[in-house]
Simulated scan of single mutants.
Amino acid sequence: MTQIERRQLWTAIHRYSGLFMLLFLAIAAATGCVLSFEKPLDAWLNPELFSCTTSRPIDPATAAGALERAHPELAATTFPVRAEPGRTVEVLVEPRGAQTLSFDQVFLDCRDGHVVGTRRTEAGWGRAHLMRGVYLLHYTLLAGDWGRWLMGVVALVWLLSNLVGVYLTWPLRRPWFRQWKRIWQFRRSSPLPRLLLDIHRASGLWLLLPLSVLAFTSVAMNFFSEAFLPAVQLLSPPRPSPFDGAPAGHKANPPAFPDLLRKAELLAARRQLTWQPAVYQREPVRGLSGLRFTPSGIEEYRALGPVTYWFDDATGTFVYEDSPYADSAGQALSRALFPLHTGQMIGWPGIVLDLILGLATLEMCGTALYLWLKRRPGRVSARKRERGKARSVRD
């Protein structure tokens, strides 16, 4: 196979792999752009659930405790340690015993803690469930595991296609770097087909590294339990944790929140963790209660994300530190996937970059489709001529 024939083969692979993933990639890019602002958009769509103003907000733990006393059929499993200004207190709940609930999220007034609204965290196209619907469309195409696996395959094809695209831009003749430099540029004065081709190639080259990271993290998260986690744990096993294995079904009552908070803060001080407690989380079926620490005291996923101290509900003793900073390299890589994919690893600059990558992916989908439609008639005519010549030779 000559160099020209090899280049033609990889061009065809790049073209048809792009056509295969074009629609799915466009959906992922568009929904990803929206999800860059998931929390602000959710609050804007549902002000009756999120908005609350007071100069002296209620303590979230006090509000959650009052909620459990007023509604003994539920247990508060997750709530913030401190109230955010201008926001209600968001509490995740589970039913107690054999009880059933029509919701799993409760919003409490920031002034006195009364319930202002509830909802179930499920996909839908009403205001209350729209952002969850966008998230599941992005992640699984609203098709469960089959959709998740399909999007994982699309991400893998995207990752490989990026590398093929770099190969196709590499010049055939010397001087290589001088000729390749032109591929990184485009001129607005060029005819439209040429301009769009140049934009398609240049944007792919300029954003190759972050786009490849985005594609890799997509593959890893979509096949997390099936492929990524087993491979990582085989190469770099994490420390044993009480979350290994099936839940034991403990029913012990959790320690009082002030005691848990005091123990967690003393433990953080001994381990020289200067972060602030941000979120209380309980796992009733495992008999564990934890406090999640972040640099700001508000839930966030900078760097590798939060550190959580877990305590046994029955004895109140410390049992496990969930920290990617003090565990294996494999655990650190696993915990890096979400902050990397969303851009939250470096805060707002990363989120803005994530938005730019989504828009660039939409641009590349659009330019690729235009170029395929523009050039398809010529390719069809050429194939017909070649078939005609082959028939005339046989005759």
Rank of each mutant, 00 (worst) to 15 (best):
L340K: 06
V352H: 01
S323D: 07
I346H: 09
L357A: 00
D322H: 11
T317E: 15
L357H: 06
Y325L: 09
L337N: 10
Q344S: 14
A336R: 01
H341K: 10
D322P: 14
D354L: 12
Q344M: 14
V352G: 01
I356W: 15
T315C: 06
T342L: 11
I351A: 01
V319R: 15
P324D: 13
W348M: 12
L353T: 06
I351C: 04
D322S: 12
F338Q: 08
V319L: 13
R335S: 06
Q344Y: 00
Q331L: 07
A336P: 11
G347R: 07
Q344C: 03
F338T: 02
H341V: 06
S323M: 00
A326V: 08
A329M: 13
H341W: 06
H341L: 04
G347Y: 06
L333P: 00
S328E: 09
F318Y: 07
M345N: 02
G343L: 10
E321M: 09
I346V: 15
F338H: 11
A332M: 11
M345Q: 13
H341I: 03
G350R: 02
S323H: 03
T315V: 09
R335Q: 14
S328A: 07
L357E: 03
Y320S: 05
L357G: 04
P349G: 10
D327Y: 13
I346C: 02
A329Q: 13
G343S: 12
L340I: 09
P349V: 13
V352K: 00
F338N: 11
L340G: 01
F338V: 14
R335L: 09
Y325A: 03
G358W: 05
I356P: 07
G350A: 08
R335G: 02
I351H: 07
G358R: 07
L355P: 05
A336C: 06
R335V: 00
G316L: 10
F318A: 08
H341G: 05
Y325N: 05
T317G: 13
G316N: 07
D354I: 04
P339I: 03
T315S: 15
D327G: 12
I356F: 14
F318R: 00
P339W: 01
D322N: 13
M345K: 05
P339K: 01
L340M: 15
A329Y: 11
D327K: 09
L340N: 04
R335F: 12
R335N: 10
V319H: 02
A336S: 13
G358C: 08
P349E: 08
A329N: 10
